[in-house]
Design a protein around this nucleic acid. Structure first.
Lengths: 174, 174
DNA sequence: AGCTAAGATCATGACGATATGATAAATATT
DNA sequence: AATATTTATCATATCGTCATGATCTTAGCT
């Protein structure tokens, strides 16, 4: 609902990378297998996230994708933005002039609802979703509380995480 | 936002019909001109609303479209339903199994937001939107109140409104 | 240098949404 | 019955999304 399948793949892929990419990049093949998503199309999608500054990619052997920032500084809005239709109006009717002096018929009633949706996208972080996913029991409760604004600490450059030649469990087909 | 242009045309057209179709059907040409929407495509769209039971159509001279029910018994949801993508899941990720025992990562946080949107569509009526449109000043206030559930009175069959041969101001090109 | 494991990219196509223009069908008026 | 008016429908076109499969490029390893 309200997210195209590409954006849905993007969110789920980012969550997967957040969970499994702590010390080594995650391969597209692994993500595609885990999400049951088309491999090449997912590759393209992830690359768009690289261009958007959400992910970093490493080519060649032992390559893959990692988060560019800390998961609690990554809002769903940033993940989803590259895959939203370009003409983004907040007007239900799509009226370009809607607002302020010239509201469309639905403007005032819709505004509240739309604000809620925008807030969800802006304030929900990858870290929160992952935490919810790990403890579904607790998630049903946490959601009752007023959401805190997204952590704005400046993108904690992690110290390059030069991973020590982690021999992964070898390729699937040796 | 979140409504395709067809659905947007549908809502605006219904509002126009609600306003101008009190005692006589409204012609597609008039609606198309008022909305600046493509004439034939709008015709098709309106016909879909006829099939959905939202409008009634009258063919031939003095024909056009009228509401099938009273405006305060017509929710936005009913207007928009025929133009929504068929696979309607409330899950942000589109997971078919999302919910209850097997929630997706975003389920609990998203549910509240989605509920708000659903409620907007279900509880907002054509009559309300039209009233808001006529008094934009007051609309900014009314929206603060808790919305009342949609009036459910049983579709007031109006007594056929056989209009007395209303000569309309003639065609555009005589 | 050559092999191999990865991401990056390209050509192609299916599909639905959004139209456009022409034509068919219905009906009120004369 | 003929005509004019109005909706209903059909054939076709365009565009963006969502892919698929093949090929190119990068970089670690020996």
């Amino acid at each position: 609902m309200w997210l195209g399948s590409t954006a849905q793949h993007a969110v789920r892929a980012v969550l997967y990378i957040t969970e499994h990419g702590i010390d080594a990049p995650v391969r597209v093949d692994d993500i595609a297998a885990a999400l049951d998503a088309p491999r090449n199309y997912l590759s393209k999608t992830l690359h768009q996230l690289v261009r958007a500054g959400v992910l970093r990619s490493v080519r060649g052997p032992n390559g893959g994708f990692q988060l560019a920032d800390a998961p609690d500084a990554l809002s769903v809005a940033r993940i989803v933005a590259p895959f939203l239709p370009s003409q983004q109006t907040r007007c239900l009717m799509g009226r370009p002039t809607c607002g302020g002096a010239n509201p469309c018929a639905a403007h005032h009633r819709w505004q509240h609802v739309a604000d809620g949706v925008i807030a969800f996208f802006e304030e929900t972080t990858a870290a929160q979703l992952l935490a919810d996913n790990r403890t579904p029991r607790a998630a049903a409760r946490v959601v009752r509380k007023k959401p805190r604004p997204v952590s704005r600490r400046p993108a904690t450059k992690r110290p390059a995480t030069k991973r020590p030649a982690t021999k992964r469990p070898a390729a699937k087909r040796p």
